[in-house]
Design a protein around this nucleic acid. Structure first.
Lengths: 296, 296
DNA sequence: TGTGCTCATAGATGAACCCTATGACCTGAC
DNA sequence: GTCAGGTCATAGGGTTCATCTATGAGCACA
């Protein structure tokens, strides 16, 4: 096992071979020569230790293992393309651009997918993405530093148009060894309000939703730890520092892997994801495209 | 833009830097030298065109853009690891192995995730994965060529134990231009029964569920096209050949991207995903682990 | 003022990749 | 039956690229 991870271009080539049925045509599509494609596929098969193709003089077809691997490769490439599109939006400093400001949770988990879809639907639109928390997103819209914003939370300020584009659910998570992991009945709001928790920083939509929900129960306790990014927060939760309150999107993997357990709670912590934009201005054409993609 | 796609190892390194806070420590974790790590990160930044790290003499921290990119990178690596685990299972021909046979839909979309979780929960278990349609999975169990099977469909034969591990939903999809895409009221079963469709081959769980649901309406019409793999079927659907009946798992991306439209239907096409194993034999220890992971 | 961590640079070695050219093989048409 | 056009594999040559070790510079903390 020389290299553990496969090459993304090799995976892309594999998909191309699957779709064209020929190494040569796949090579042409990828802009490389036919012998290169042949060699690439051979080394991919050697590295994976699995025969992927049945080569013949009338073309190449997938083995049954190859068909499955190709589908897994597609899944990897979907994520990779989302990353590419997202990065392009972070980099873009163009003239005919759509300036988007999105809260962290939305930027991380939803925007890349929208951008991939947007490239199909409206290839001419160039998005410039800024990542901020919900409070800053609103400030940027007011200061005309963004054309369209995406925030989490229950409502939007009066001076902004808003439109729901989805929902998200906050969940309480603990490590499997925590007492709450074995609770039979849902967590009562008072218990939650009296426990130091891992939470996002003030000003974030996640934090606001959480505080609003606990307001009538005496508000949340002093946080055990307060962070401006989700990844270290999630890491702290996995380490067992304290129970954490996070978007279900963020911890889905950890829950699936058994590293975290969701604690049922009586508290309704749903929240609406909203597109927002200034009330005065007309929403520009590219923004309408993105909005349509996001709402679908 | 020399190469369009980033290097997976560079993404892994980025995640390591984010978690260790130091290029040198990240390099050590990846088993490369510190200068190599430094160079890798520089080229990654140059290729993406985005500044990811703030380097200082006391370590390296992520920029705000870097934090977002790191999360996207994690998503890519999750899929890549699923592919790695899946491939390892396809390759494995070991002694202390757990022989799993899964139907195509389950193998493609669920098994890799289970394997990743299983490696965390029970690192000693080696899985050997065979992909077949539901009928063949049952045959393999009876012939003692598999220890544990996963199939779709309403029921399992009497001589097999079975246990639900999830649900799946079959959906009818068409291209956006198709008349059904603009239907106001749900599709009636008779309409479906009289239309040539794109379907999986006989013997697959998808096909059986579909035929059983339409049995009382005169059965399905002659298929427009019948294929043993989902990818070309999906491609045919996107090309507008005919309406297709596929697992929601399979077409989620295409629907999100607007290339396919789900047609509401009166027909209930839900189905249960089941683990199955021979009734006579005791389920071996590794199989119990996998079953637990799959059920969570 | 050291000690120890951080990261960057320099120079050399080596492996990996790609391309062009060519050959062998099958399929289908005439 | 034979020839054209497609398939894929191999060989050889060149270049690029990434890696390593060794070293230097800067900051933190004792």
């Amino acid at each position: 096992m020389s290299t553990r991870l496969p090459d993304l271009e090799a995976l892309e080539l594999l998909v191309a071979v699957a779709e064209t049925g020929s190494l040569g045509q796949a090579a042409a599509r990828q802009g490389i020569s036919q012998p290169s494609a042949s060699a690439r596929m051979s080394t991919l098969e050697r590295r994976l230790g699995v025969r992927l193709l049945v080569r013949s003089t009338s073309g190449s077809r997938l083995t049954s293992a190859g068909a499955v691997v190709t589908d897994w490769a597609r899944a990897v490439l979907v994520q990779a393309n989302a990353l590419i599109e997202g990065v392009a939006a972070l980099r873009s400093r163009q003239e005919d651009r759509l300036r988007v400001s999105a809260s962290l949770t939305i930027a991380e988990h939803l925007v890349p997918g929208w951008l991939v879809a947007l490239r199909e639907a409206a290839p001419g639109v160039h998005v410039e993405l800024n990542v901020a928390n919900s409070t800053h997103v609103i400030e940027r819209l007011r200061a005309d530093e963004a054309d369209l914003g995406f925030i989490e939370g229950r409502g939007a300020p009066r001076d902004l148009h808003s439109r729901a584009v989805g929902r998200d659910r906050l969940v309480v998570v603990v490590v499997p060894g925590h007492p709450w992991a074995r609770k039979r009945r849902p967590l009562r709001p008072v218990e939650l309000a009296n426990t130091p928790l891992l939470v996002r920083e003030a000003g974030s939509g996640t934090r606001e939703t959480f505080e609003a929900a606990l307001a009538s129960y005496g508000g949340p306790a002093e946080p055990a730890l307060e962070l401006g990014a989700t990844a270290p927060l999630r890491a702290a939760a996995v380490a067992g520092t304290a129970p954490a309150v996070l978007s279900a999107l963020v911890v889905a993997d950890e829950i699936a892997a058994g590293r975290l357990v969701e604690v049922p709670s009586e508290l309704r912590l749903d929240r609406v994801l909203r597109a927002v934009w200034p009330r005065g201005r007309e929403l520009p054409e590219p923004a309408l495209h993105l909005l349509r993609v996001a709402r679908s």
